[in-house]
Simulated assay, not measured.
Amino acid sequence: MSVATHKPELTNITLWVMTLTTGLVVANLYYNQPLLNDMATTFYVSNGKVGQVSMLTQIGYAVGMLFVVPMADMVKRKRLMLIDFAFIVAALLLTAMAPNVYMLILSGFLLGAASIIPQLLVPMAAHLAKPDERGNKIGFIMSGLLIGILLSRTLSGFVGAHFGWRAMFYIAAAIMLLMWALIYFLLPEVEPDYKGTYRSLMKSLVRLVKDEPKLRLASLRGALCFACFSAFWTTLVFMLKQNFNQGSDVAGAFGLAGAFGAIAAGLMGRLSDKMDAFKLSTFTLSLLLISFVIFLFSAHSIAGLIIGVIVMDMGVQATHISNQAIIFSLDASARNRINTIYMVSYFVGGALGTFMASRIWDTYQWTGVCAIGIILSAIALIIHLITRKTMQHSI
């Protein structure tokens, strides 16, 4: 059951606060990727073992989204975010002080589980935006999120190379304290729509999966795309060390190239308000497939890798925005739960991509990673094409 409530306007200040918070919080999930080599050296473990830090961070994010994000439909969202920031800061400090790789893996899981604030803010923006501006506003916040994802690698790579990998997580904890203050003073409160119990709320997730074919298909597309994305970024630092003898700072610098793709993806958010989402997704999924073909032939070419990163990020992020425009047009009273289903699928896909790439790296190295990307992106494109009628059916 839901009730009608007055909702505040999505002002420019509110939109910018949401975008900045989204980018800086989501960065917590990716600081570790350029630092994996340094972490492995610190604890004298293999690349495959330290890859579990990245994988468990993504699994933790999926767990947090599954059990915490749906609560935003039944409790005050701003209050939920302010409480969550305390857990984020605690997890960052635990990571910075980890005495061994097992504590590092545990803290990665906890950091992922706590860093779910972006998944409260994106549905909140969709809720507050006017229907004819929804894709544009989501695209704007997603540009902040995607730039946060990519530049987090650049920042952590630089900090890790000059101050050690632990310093990055102390800095991140300080940033989160500043973001707590920003949310407290500048973000409006949004009253919940859902009036049932937490148990019935969680049961409704199953009903939504059963009743919404567009949600199922968008979730599957998203999972496959993010599996490709995570496979690349998890193993890039290993490949750069092996083929170019470069460290975390160079691996992180590739985030700058990816940021161009993220900006382009934000522009595609505007297109999603004006053109057929199916045709747009066909194009963006094709970009993802092409990027891994580029990577396959660029194992010894920095220029080729940069081109591939730009193409890959355009494909992954624009498909993500297209998927969100589709799912947020479904049940308005269940947007947080719908986003939960989609994003849990998304990050489970990412964790599986990280797991496969970390395992395959030890045997087949870069060629194996590229093969994973080509196969999974081809599957995503095929599924997309054979479900044309379902995705284009108007409801």
Results as ranks from 00 to 15, higher is better:
4 A>M: 13
6 H>Q: 09
11 T>H: 10
11 T>W: 09
16 W>V: 11
23 G>Y: 06
25 V>K: 06
30 Y>M: 10
33 Q>N: 08
35 L>V: 00
42 T>C: 05
44 Y>D: 14
44 Y>I: 13
46 S>F: 12
51 G>L: 07
57 T>W: 09
58 Q>S: 15
59 I>P: 02
85 F>S: 07
89 V>T: 00
93 L>G: 01
97 M>E: 11
105 I>S: 08
105 I>Y: 09
116 I>G: 01
118 P>Y: 05
123 P>G: 11
123 P>V: 08
124 M>V: 00
125 A>G: 09
126 A>W: 04
127 H>G: 10
134 R>L: 11
137 K>Y: 07
139 G>S: 01
139 G>F: 01
145 L>D: 01
150 L>F: 15
154 T>N: 15
161 A>I: 06
174 A>S: 13
176 M>H: 09
179 M>K: 04
181 A>S: 14
187 L>E: 01
198 Y>A: 13
200 S>A: 06
201 L>D: 07
210 K>Q: 09
213 P>F: 07
217 L>N: 06
220 L>Y: 07
221 R>V: 14
227 A>H: 02
231 A>P: 03
234 T>D: 02
239 M>W: 04
253 A>V: 04
255 G>E: 03
256 L>E: 03
265 A>W: 02
291 S>N: 12
293 V>I: 11
296 L>F: 14
304 G>K: 12
308 G>I: 00
310 I>K: 02
319 T>V: 13
335 R>Y: 05
336 N>L: 08
338 I>G: 04
339 N>F: 13
341 I>P: 02
347 F>D: 03
353 G>W: 05
357 A>L: 01
360 I>L: 10
363 T>V: 12
367 T>C: 08
376 L>I: 07
379 I>Q: 00
379 I>V: 14
384 H>I: 02
386 I>P: 03
388 R>G: 01
390 T>F: 13
